[in-house]
Amino acid sequence: MASSSPSPAERFIAGILPENPIYRQMLGMCPTLAVTNSLKPALTMAIATTFVLLCANISISLIRPLLKPHLRILVFTLTIAAFVTIADRLLAAYLYEMSKQLGPYVPLIIVNCIIISRCEACASKQPLPHAIADAIGMGIGFTLALASLGFVRELLGMGSLFGHQVLPSSWPNWGILVLPPGAFLTLGALLGAVNAWTARRKARQLSN
């Protein structure tokens, strides 16, 4: 996976698909499943997470010479908690309705494995540019994953996108997709699709 010293550009690309946090690493499942019943909360959540990831990666990368090995996880978590508090207050101030809708899942960004794992694997070892590229790449990967889930669930579950009706009214809404079980089913199916697609691509590359 992570080779010795990839350039910032490689780190950036890696986060989007080859090491996509949801589809490849299965990290940060909690918000992925909870807030993706439509596109709007999914995207808000993804942006909030990316913001926290970026801030946390920057600060961890800056204080990296000061980190003590046995305390690093605690330092990561507390740093993340501070930024999550900021993100939470920002959401409450400017997008009050959305903040109400996301409820406890905004503070739960603190325990999102993606951020801790990126702080650990990248930011605590790499200089600032790498850490920033990594955070943005991973953030885009996370956003894409959440958006794809939200897209499928909102389109098939309610026939709409961003709240606008797109499918004809004759479409029978697949209500189950908007309910909690639908989150598991959609993610399972999408995961299978992504796996099948990458396997086929790999096979094609090998045969060439």
């Binding site: 046995h70 494995c113 650990e120």
Partner: peptide
């Protein structure tokens, strides 16, 4: 243990 990331994934 100290070498490992400690993410307990």
């Amino acid at each position: 243990t100290e070498i490992l990331p400690g993410a307990n994934c």
